[in-house]
Design a protein around this nucleic acid. Structure first.
Length: 415
RNA sequence: GCGAUCGUAGCUCAGUUGGUUAGAGCGCCGGUUUGUGGUACCGGAGGUCGGGGGUUCGAGACCCCUCGAUCGCCCCA
């Protein structure tokens, strides 16, 4: 199968074609339609950035930065990194282009991301996300708007069944710091009972112990102090506005006080849309508020919220799509009619009708090949008993005046 | 990074306890038949059995290594 001398695809990359591409394209098109309804502007951003853009903002100790980035030196010796996520690059673009003048700015984008991970169902080294961000909006209404948009997107894709919105707050930075300290204290006390993984997490990312799947970790994680004990009044009020906004918009949600986000920059609202239909890769859309990120990057204090969703994961949930049918298959059943067939095809295409020509290979089999593409109409050009014959036949029971009149206009017929 | 399963024509797969020139269906190309029709029949092209090494008189089948896919762990979207 894999022949010698034929290059193979890089591990974890995909060549998306056929039905998979139909689903993929459907997700992107639906996103683009929905983001217009919410008046988000499209942005196209570079696929690589200076390494520091990601390393500093995501957190040096996160797995994404410490072992998953595709980083390399370019010819001038600068360290560059293929984007492992969108948010940091968008924040950078916001600052370098002076987009403060447009604040609050609602941005949407999509494209490839790169992470050096072990490939698995719904997990690739080059994967694709759709992404929505609101930058320069401190109000909880921004969080609500983003969540309502996500909810509508999933509904329009027809995949809201079995997908639940899990919501949490991480509080402001003082809250998060106090909670984190209390968690570390709690876990230190039970360190000996924790799994090996979780003992490591205690050093690197203690919040992650909360959603550990190890049975031996569960009692300790479940008895850990809750964020609610540490929430400042402002942070609690903020979260209350988000939840009441969701209720007002009729978006179903579940509080998950153990929900934690992997990247360091999140504050306040954190959320994931989760399904049980994708095995281990259950998170289909995730995000939250990252008020401190832009300031950390050297810009002015700028509140922001956003989310991203994996296009491949969404596409896997989408039901089989009916692909749009070809309008007309033009068949030259005789070699002497081939150039006229080409003329007819051009006339139809210029008239806005999707058309394919069948004028190669065995004349006897051209018609059969045309039938197999399941077109709406078949136009047949033949020579019978020395006479030219031509006909247009509908394959279903539908009529189409536009196609009929383009065919009946015999400009393509010579002599 | 760790564990498990898998890898035979373009595609989906058979290949019996290791035994002569590796098979089918679909697809592709050609022919005959039919003659306004996705017909039937005949023929053809296309495989270093993922790659490398080993065991054996003999390996697609067994062993080791390697690459890739899949499913978990981890991480995350």
């Amino acid at each position: 199968m894999a022949k010698h001398n034929i290059p193979s695809a890089i591990r974890g990359t995909q060549d998306i074609f056929g039905e998979d591409q139909e689903r993929f394209g459907h997700v992107v098109e639906t996103f683009d339609r929905v983001r217009r309804l919410y008046n988000f502007k499209r942005a196209e951003l570079p696929v690589f950035e200076a390494t520091g853009v990601f390393a500093r903002s995501l957190g040096e100790s996160t797995d994404v930065v410490s072992k998953e980035m595709y980083s390399f030196e370019d010819r001038s010796g600068d360290s560059l990194t293929l984007r492992p996520e969108f948010t940091a690059g968008i924040a950078r673009a916001y600052l370098t282009n002076g987009w403060q003048q447009h604040a609050p700015l609602k941005l949407a984008t999509h494209g490839p991301l790169f992470r050096y991970e072990r490939p698995q169902k719904g997990r690739y080294r080059q994967f694709h996300q759709i992404d929505a961000e609101i930058i320069g909006a401190a109000e909880p209404q921004a969080d609500v708007e983003l969540l309502v948009m996500a909810d509508q997107l999933l509904k329009e894709l027809g995949i809201d069944q079995g997908v639940t919105l899990q919501l949490n707050t991480l509080g402001d930075s003082a809250t998060r710091a106090a909670w984190r300290t209390a968690l570390v204290d709690h876990f230190e006390k039970h360190k000996g009972e924790l799994s090996e993984d979780s003992q490591n997490r205690l050093e690197t990312n203690p919040l992650r112990i909360l959603d550990s799947k190890e049975a031996q970790d569960r009692p300790i994680a479940d008895s850990a102090p809750d964020i609610d004990e540490f929430l400042s009044d402002d942070a609690a009020a903020f979260f209350a506005s988000v939840t009441s906004g969701l209720n007002a918009a009729n978006v179903a949600w579940q509080r998950n006080s153990r929900l934690v986000r992997g990247l360091d920059y999140y504050r306040h609202t954190a959320f994931e849309f989760v399904t049980d239909r994708l095995g281990a890769q259950g998170t289909v859309l995730g995000g939250g508020r990252y008020d401190g990120l832009i300031q950390n990057m050297g810009g002015p204090a700028t509140p922001a919220v956003g989310w991203a969703a994996g296009i491949e994961r969404l596409a896997m949930l989408v039901d089989t799509l009916q692909t749009p049918k070809l309008d007309v298959a033009v068949v030259a059943e005789n070699r002497d009619r081939e150039s006229e067939a080409m003329a007819l095809v051009s006339q139809l295409r210029r008239g806005g009708v999707s058309t394919e020509i069948f004028a190669t290979g065995s004349p006897k089999k051209r018609y059969n090949r045309a039938v197999k593409t399941s077109p709406r109409f078949i136009a047949s050009l033949d020579v019978r008993d020395g006479e030219k014959t031509q006909g247009l036949s509908a394959q279903g029971d539908e009529a189409d005046d536009r196609i009929t009149s383009l065919f009946d206009n015999r400009a393509w017929l010579k002599g």
